[in-house]
Amino acid sequence: MDELLSWNRSKANSFNVAVVPLAPREPRLVNCLRRTLVSHDMMGGYLDDRFVQGTNSEAPYAFYHWQYIDIFNYFTHQLVTIPPAVWTNAAHKHGVIVLGKQQNAV
C-alpha cells in the first residue's frame, strides 16, 4: 500500500502509464442527473487484459457502448487494482472516467 500511495507519474515507467487524455463529454458528467457505471470483473473471462500493453487477440477489449457509460470500474479479486493502461486509454478516448478498486481487508 505504501508503494501505491507514494506513486509519482514523473518517476513511473511510461510502459505502464495511460497516455490518452480524457475526452470531453456532452453533457458534462457533473451536469448529468443520471449516471451509468459499468463494473468489469477481470475474472469474468477478460483474461487477455492481464498484458499491460495489450494482446494480439482480435477483440479482447470489445466494448461496444462507451457512449452510454459515464464511469468504468475495473475490478479484480486483489487487494488493490490499478486499471491497465489499455483499458484507461480506451475509456478516456470516449470520455469515460476509470476507477480502480480496493478490496476491504478482512
Rank of each mutant, 00 (worst) to 15 (best):
Asn16Phe: 15
Ile82Pro: 04
Val96Gly: 02
Leu47Thr: 05
Arg35Trp: 09
Gly95Tyr: 00
Tyr61Cys: 08
Ser6Gly: 04
Asp49Pro: 00
His77Arg: 13
Val30Gly: 03
Ile82His: 00
Ala23Ser: 14
Arg9Cys: 10
His40Gly: 01
Leu29Trp: 02
Gln103Cys: 10
Val98Ile: 10
Pro83Glu: 00
Phe75Trp: 01
Arg25Met: 11
Phe15Tyr: 14
Met1Phe: 06
Val20Gln: 14
Pro60Gln: 03
Glu58Arg: 14
Arg28Gly: 08
Leu99Thr: 15
Val30Phe: 13
Ala62Asn: 10
Pro24Cys: 11
Ser39Val: 13
Gly100Pro: 07
Met43Arg: 05
Glu3Thr: 10
Asn8Cys: 14
Asn16Thr: 09
Thr55Gln: 01
Cys32Leu: 10
His65Pro: 06
Asp2Ile: 04
Pro27Lys: 04
Val30Glu: 01
Gln67Pro: 15
Phe75Arg: 07
Ala85Glu: 11
Asn56Asp: 15
Asn73Ser: 06
Ile82Asp: 03
Val52Met: 06
Phe72Thr: 02
Gly54Ala: 02
Ala90Asn: 10
Gly54Met: 03
Arg28Glu: 11
Gly44Pro: 00
Arg35His: 14
Gly44Glu: 07
Ser14Gly: 14
Gly45Asp: 14
Arg50Thr: 09
Asn73Phe: 03
Asn104Gln: 09
Leu33Asp: 09
Cys32Asn: 14
Leu33Lys: 05
Asn31Gln: 02
Ile71Glu: 06
Val19Thr: 13
Ile69Asn: 08
Trp66Tyr: 15
Arg25Gln: 10
Leu33His: 10
Gln102Cys: 00
Ile82Phe: 03
Ser10Val: 09
His94Met: 02
Leu47Asn: 09
Trp87Thr: 07
Val80Tyr: 12
Pro83Asn: 02
Met1His: 08
His92Asn: 14
Val19Pro: 06
Arg28Phe: 01
Ser6Trp: 07
Gly100Ala: 08
Gln102Thr: 01
Ile69Arg: 00
Ser6Asn: 12
Cys32Gln: 12
Ser39Thr: 15
Gln53Cys: 07
Arg50Ile: 14
Asn89Pro: 14
Leu47His: 09
